[in-house]
Design a protein around this nucleic acid. Structure first.
Lengths: 150, 150
DNA sequence: TATTGTTATACTCTATAACTATA
DNA sequence: TATAGTTATAGAGTATAACAATA
């Protein structure tokens, strides 16, 4: 029935999203990272030279969280902080070889989560999901600058 | 590229889910409730006679959270606690007229969120989303009893 | 002794605000 | 004085564990 709030698509999306989060948090645990770290690592791996403040803006999180994530990734040897010689207040984050390796492992782990979560979803439907959700996320980010735009 | 973890469907679902949550948390705020309250209210509104422990199991949350939600809904006048005369340890939660009215308002609010979030998604695609996500949530709950099954 | 609801406590997550170092 | 990164603090959210009433 359409009068049930639980039939709202966004309600459904929220619940499914929570399940997905729980699943890949568990799957990533052996590597000592959470989803947010993978998001940052993937962004950095694209060759970004943004400094930390800008990274925060792009990921839609507070600068202090970037610091925390960078600390953790640095401790894992996945990144190194590099001070800008021209302005020593700024620093960029560089992915190490070990970090690239970690990223690959996490990527495989996430693909496993996809396979497990979407067991009963056909390949065609997975592509449809992708085609719908990706632009949805982008348009949502445009509406509200606080949402991640990277 | 398929080697980007951010292209994982579950990664995408998690992010979209977070956006959806943020959106309708804001939309529901004027009514003094959050999404979880609406979920409980909708479940109760279906005529459930389950006592609190069982509600917790069905929603996949701790009993103490049921207590907190019941407290809040009771304060809003949306439900009343009814002690089971046969076993006074147990109690069921009954939706009041005011609660039914609140539920209707929340349902409308969620439909508004759908419309806003899915502005650029065609009606056909919305139905596809629904058809994919609903069974996905059910099968996920079967896999893992800790996930909501109601 | 076992179970229901409840309360107390602790933990996770993340943002805001205060601080430091550079500019 | 202003800005980047950092650290300290606080708030939301929820689970676990202790507790009281009832069985």
């Amino acid at each position: 029935m359409s009068s049930d709030p639980r039939s709202s698509v966004s309600f459904l999306l929220a619940k499914v999203g929570q399940v997905a989060t729980t699943r890949f948090t568990a799957k990533l645990a052996p590597y000592g990272v959470k989803a947010k770290h993978v998001g940052l690592l993937a962004l950095l791996s694209g060759g970004t030279r943004d400094f930390q403040q800008e990274l925060g803006r792009r990921l839609g999180v507070a600068p202090s969280l970037i610091v925390a994530m960078a600390d953790e990734l640095e401790q894992l040897g996945a990144i190194t902080r590099i001070r800008d010689p021209d302005d020593r207040r700024k620093s960029t984050l560089e992915v190490t070889d070990s970090g690239r390796d970690l990223l690959k492992k996490c990527t495989r782990a996430l693909q496993e989560v996809d396979d497990e979560l979407l067991t009963h979803v056909s390949q065609a439907d997975r592509e449809v999901l992708h085609k719908i959700l990706n632009p949805l996320l982008r348009s949502a980010a445009e509406d509200n600058p606080k949402e991640p735009r990277a």
